[in-house]
Design a protein around this nucleic acid. Structure first.
Lengths: 254, 254
DNA sequence: GATTGACATTGACGTTGCGTAAAGGTGTAT
DNA sequence: ATACACCTTTACGCAACGTCAATGTCAATC
């Protein structure tokens, strides 16, 4: 039995373009070319196409399939095992992504229903008040009333857009910090990026940035168990790690 | 503070090419262009880039990011939820792939020297497995988890001998079906023999036979184009013919 | 003031696996 | 002879940039 492109195509469920492409990249050459230049395939080619499609279904790249089907005694199982690893990696990444997206949605959903500005204003006020009650006293003692008041004023004047930005920054910080923590190296690039993100995040609340205040706050993350609990939620030791990274970032390691 | 491409790039951790690309597709235009044609970015652009990178981290396409960052009051959360759905779909597909790869590995490992033909057999099995995944829910609902699980276990435990038997049955079925198809009579003897062979073949995969499941699968051969393609390979219309024959065989013609 | 080296610019091709024309030749039935 | 289905090659398009290549600019040094 001999087949032209379309016959083979409909037989195997692929387009003629695909067959021409496979010819082009050399993974499936026709048995012969007739006098008019038509591609003619035989049974051998049908079988080979089945093989190709089989691996394609499994998500193997044509490049790899080429190795598998051209080398006569290629270890297909080994190739598949390798491929499997890649798939698993992809899957993990995907799961991470989904988790992050979920977190972001949850974060933004906190204010989703308050789409109107008034509620948003109310939320911001409440946040300031909560913060005041929780940490106000210590912060006031440390940085003075004036600084705190200015910070609160800044927060109040935040637009929705800015607020979203801060939220995004927070998520980014968390992600980066989690990654950095795995490296166990507070001097490393990731850790320093986390420290930098933390600074950026901070400048949204602090009217003025200073290395000393930054480093001091980092120390507080370790000293104050409420902060520690927040940062260590996913991975114990994260608060300490962040402090180290920030101390290096600010150059104020003591 | 003003930034050139490289400064902004190293600040945000992206290449200059990326910045030029973002300019090109219009999601991040520089604040201004200086007299020498250099791109100059300001604080607003830095913030915007942060936003873009944030969504990029979450795997959102630049196309979608464009909508999010250009439209001032775009519902980012809704976009994310939509994106989340896509991610979940991707994940499911990936899991299917991995499961198939695993099975293939198991198969090849069980029988080291799998000829091309046997690989094609693996492909057919995969189709059945796919069917499980696709219709598994309905089947499980219809016949209960236990039945389906037993079926899967059965498939895994097939010996080589049994495997050969199934292959032989399949060949017989194909021949008989091809002959029967010529008679154009699904009620005829040949067609009914084909239906019976199909039942025998099936019982190698299904722990329990039921007319309803059999008829349902036959219908699926027509509804699912992958199966249709398989059966119609030699003669278009064969899948439909087989379904008709089986419906009569089971006495469940609706 | 001339050279150097780092940095900027605009093209433009390469990547992956085909889809989708466009422009034209071939096979076969009427 | 005409129609019509099917074949061919050529080539752009898709996503998100990486990677030259050719050329212009800025700041510092000889």
């Amino acid at each position: 039995m001999e087949y032209t492109v379309q016959k083979l195509g409909s037989l195997a469920g692929v387009s003629t373009r695909t067959l021409r492409y496979y010819d082009e990249i050399g993974i499936l050459k026709p048995a012969r070319i007739n006098s008019s230049g038509y591609r003619i395939y035989g049974q051998k080619e049908v079988d080979r196409l089945q093989q190709i499609l089989f691996y394609r279904e499994l998500g193997v790249s044509l490049e790899s399939i080429k190795d598998i089907v051209t080398a006569p005694s290629f270890d297909g199982a080994a190739a598949l095992r390798e491929h499997r690893e890649k798939l698993l990696e992809k899957k993990e990444q995907l799961e991470l992504l989904i988790a992050n997206v979920d977190k972001t949605i949850a974060l933004t959903e906190g204010r989703m229903n308050m789409s109107n500005k008034e509620k948003f204003e109310g939320f911001k006020k409440k946040m300031i008040d909560d913060n005041e009650k929780k940490y106000g006293k210590e912060i006031r003692e440390k940085y003075g009333n004036d600084t705190v008041n200015k910070s609160n004023a800044k927060l109040k004047n935040m637009t929705q857009e800015q607020y979203n930005e801060v939220t995004a920054l927070e998520v980014q910080l968390k992600l980066t910090l989690a990654e950095a923590f795995k490296t166990v190296d507070p001097v490393g690039e990731l850790a320093q990026k986390a420290a930098d993100l933390h600074k950026q995040w901070l400048t949204n609340y602090w009217p003025e940035y200073s290395k000393e205040a930054h480093a001091s706050l980092a120390q507080m993350y370790v000293d104050d168990e409420r902060f520690t609990a927040y940062y260590d939620k996913e991975q114990p030791g994260t608060a300490e790690f962040l402090r180290d990274a920030i101390q290096i970032y600010t150059g104020l390691k003591k």
